[in-house]
Nucleic acid binder design. Structure first.
Length: 154
DNA sequence: GCCAACGTTGGC
DNA sequence: GCCAACGTTGGC
């Protein structure tokens, strides 16, 4: 059994955020709609069962880390890519070789108070986070050191 | 709503 | 394979 890895998943809370996970049956939700190849590659090739995930809220009033989740189902074809009704529909994706994947995650903890991006930026321990270096990556790896440090802020 | 950064598309 | 045009992300 390989060691678990740590990740940060971005979400726009008005579309799908920690509140949606909280309200879902068993607090399990499908992480779909990822349409960026670098993020897709992480999701498809590296995110595995039991991995730990920070839920990060972006493009909203209170930007920052909102809680944690764990992966309960690793990569499988994202059904929204084949649904013409979906915003995430992708005409060019071939069902025999799906372009996009989803994972299912289960909410494990909600921060008593969202840890704001502005605060995270202050800690030198977090200087190397992809969050600051490559701000548009919606699925990004987190080191164990970063994970533990941020958990300490909960 | 603005706009910088950066990812994607398509003509050549 | 280059690169200009265009579209999207995401902080402010």
């Amino acid at each position: 059994m390989k060691e678990i890895s740590y990740w940060l998943f971005k979400a726009e809370p008005h579309i799908y955020g920690i509140d949606h996970l909280q309200a879902a049956p068993k607090k399990i939700g499908r992480w779909d709609g990822i349409r960026n190849y670098q993020a897709r590659n992480f999701l498809r090739d590296q995110v595995k069962l039991e991995d730990q995930v920070f839920i990060y809220h972006s493009s909203c009033k209170l930007i920052g880390i909102a809680g944690t989740a764990k992966v309960v189902k690793p990569a499988y074809p994202d059904p929204t890519q084949f649904n013409p009704q979906s915003d995430y529909f992708d005409q060019k994706s071939n069902p025999d070789n799906p372009r996009w994947v989803s994972v299912d995650i289960q909410l494990t903890n909600i921060c008593s108070k969202i840890i704001p991006l502005t605060e995270l930026k202050h800690y030198s321990q977090l200087d190397n986070m992809a969050l600051f270096k490559q701000s548009r990556l919606s699925i990004q790896p987190v080191t164990k050191e970063e994970w533990d440090f941020i958990l300490g802020l909960f």
